[in-house]
Design a protein around this nucleic acid. Structure first.
Lengths: 206, 206
DNA sequence: ACCCATTGGATACCTTCACTATCTATGTTA
DNA sequence: TAACATAGATAGTGAAGGTATCCAATGGGT
């Protein structure tokens, strides 16, 4: 298909598709002539993925590019793809001037018995968030976090269960990314509704 | 204290504080003369809150203002504050042109037996995210989500437990906001590490 | 074989956001 | 009283994410 059909089928304007091509979010089409290129379903799929990551999760164009590059370069090693991709998807917006003190987080991970890369960005995210909360007077420590971590373990089991039974490694890697990144707003929405419910329950039970 | 001291104690530049004052993120100081105003600890506290919300969670200035306005206007009714404040903190960046179909989500909430406002924005967020995932070929439905929702329930219990034993209603409302909003990156970080651990576990167990 | 809308590629422009800098009149402090 | 700080107003900045316009080269319909 040509660019206008790609635009029509994805709902993304031609100029924006050109912009994504310039930015390397989409691989160039197969050139058939000096002013003609052919796009296929892979492009359409990727374009939809780009819109999901930038639109639903609000990822920046450069972050999206990094994530997609990791996805296509290391397809097959789902474990590795997730590690690379998720490192790029910052959980917090904080641009850490000095690397945060992760000793406490490291101790928590050890106590949990988790096998997690020493350099995993999630460690830093967790440490930063804790520091922020404390500076605002909220008392949170490893002890507070432990039950949350146990629930996270069970969430992760559910997540990984969704990945079984897929043959195509590209599809597996892509689904892993989608489940990790796009499911986040959904889980937070569930949490907020559960909070509202629990708050109402306690309020009326008095 | 005067503005320069507020700046020094918060680490935020004087010009930025002036900007926040203009934007209504900080209430004006007590004017002592035509070109002099006095700020207090409330200002400092609020300024730190602003930096946490915009920095750690990446909230926009206008969203932050809405959240803080809800906080100060309805202090005392923690339940209400959370409903108002969290409505403003969008979980997804999607600017929904047409309101999404929430029938399925509504059915899930009913099945869970949750008491959740009919107009809660979390319903729309959940519906949008589901629609997004499906359009990308990920099979998610109410059945998939139910176990996640049960874990969210237990997370909410932990959350609400953190709010007990606080006397000052302002402090309670503020902490509720912080726990809901600022803890999100922390919980997602825990989930990612748990995923990595679970992935490693399954990989080596084969 | 011809014509004109479509295309690829390049470049310039636009809008929003979150600051940042500058200016002026007024206050404070040593 | 001289040097510095402050409030308030206005204008400017830089990044991000597109959007608009040009141009030469097609290529499907006639």
């Amino acid at each position: 298909m040509r660019i206008s059909e790609l635009s029509r089928r994805s709902g993304v304007s031609v100029t924006t598709i050109k912009y994504y091509l310039r930015e390397g979010l989409l691989p160039p089409g197969r050139q058939t002539a000096a002013t003609q290129a052919e796009y296929d379903d892979q492009h359409l799929r990727r374009l939809r993925l780009v819109r999901a990551l930038t639109g639903v999760r609000g990822l920046s164009v450069s972050t999206t590019r990094e994530v997609l590059d990791a996805l296509t370069e290391h397809t097959g090693d789902t474990h590795l793809v997730l590690g690379l991709a998720l490192g790029a998807v910052r959980l917090s917006d904080e641009t850490a001037a000095h690397p945060p003190e992760t000793a406490e987080v490291d101790a928590l991970v050890k106590e949990l018995g988790w096998a997690v890369n020493e350099a995993a960005p999630a460690r830093a995210t967790l440490a930063e968030t804790l520091a922020s909360l404390r500076s605002l007077g909220v008392p949170v420590d490893a002890h507070t976090l432990l039950p949350y971590a146990r629930l996270a373990e069970r969430t992760a089991v559910l997540d990984l269960d969704q990945l079984t039974g897929l043959d195509d490694p590209l599809e597996t890697a892509e689904r892993a990314l989608l489940l990790t990144v796009l499911l986040e707003p959904a889980l937070m929405a569930l949490r907020r509704m559960a909070q509202e419910n629990e708050s109402a329950r306690r309020h009326t039970a008095e």
